[in-house]
Amino acid sequence: MKNYVIMRLLATIPLLLGISFLCFVFINLIPSDPAEVALRIRQTPVITEELIARTRAELGLDQPFLARYFHWLWDCLHFDLGVSYTNPARTVLGEIGRCLPATLELAGLSLVYVIALSLPIGFLSAVYKDSWFDRLMRGFVFAATAMPVYWVGLLLIWIVSIRLDLLPTSGYGGLSHLILPAFTVALSYISTYIRLIRNNMLENMREDYVLYAQARGLKRRAILVRHILKNSLQSCVTAIGMSIPQLIAGTIVVENVFAWPGVGRLCIASIFNRDYPVIQAYVLLVGVLFVFFNLAFDILQYAADPRLRERKA
């Protein structure tokens, strides 16, 4: 077990390096000269060639590419992500930190929706396969995977907020502001996991151990919950874990539809303003989250499955 965790931790290092390198290359590919940008941020009135050259040296831009990369990486590890181009008074870290809680609220509630809805629905669809409930849910899954997220958001605003006047249309606030956007983010994941859990359950139902459990005279409910559900969840846990960073990234569109002040909206605004350091930090953040959750749920699955534990030890 300990060996496995260490191995997995070591394996993430090259991945993290790759991700950070990609982010670094990204900011170096932008069309404008960073030294010139830096001068503009400092509101230097007259920008001369000589001044640019001096700033280059000062910022270490005259150093070789790899040296600059490691310098930048070092700063990142100290949570120094630079300053915003559009508003030099603000650091990138501060900007992200200001918007992140709203996004986490949104993603957190979406995750609650995903688990609370897809688990029981997937379970019931498999147990009552081909019943009216299963058919209805299959229709729902099909529709939900084909609907663009933003359109779902608009429809929900229109029906729930405008026609029925039940919830606020958009903006930041308490739980009532959160219900619709979180559901919109969750919808496509709900349908994915209903399908995943249902198919996994159906596959497990055909296994020999189910037949033998029946032959041993176990109760149907015990077989379904203790054996089939547990075995099916085994493979779903990783998938759901992997979807957490996806949920965080998936808030981009929804935040823009519902005017939710999270990092997604910050990111889109930064794209329009060409505020590259903010975009870079956002990409880096999501990439690191992705790797981290991947690692965490791999280890979790490993701990839960006796077969895996045996094989890799």
Binding site: E207, Y209, A215, R216, H227, N231, R307
Partner: peptide, 15 residues
């Protein structure tokens, strides 16, 4: 009492 074939797959691997 029942005895089935494929003993390797007749027990739930998780218990």
């Amino acid at each position: 009492g029942v005895v089935l074939q494929n003993p390797m797959s007749c027990f739930d691997p998780l218990y």
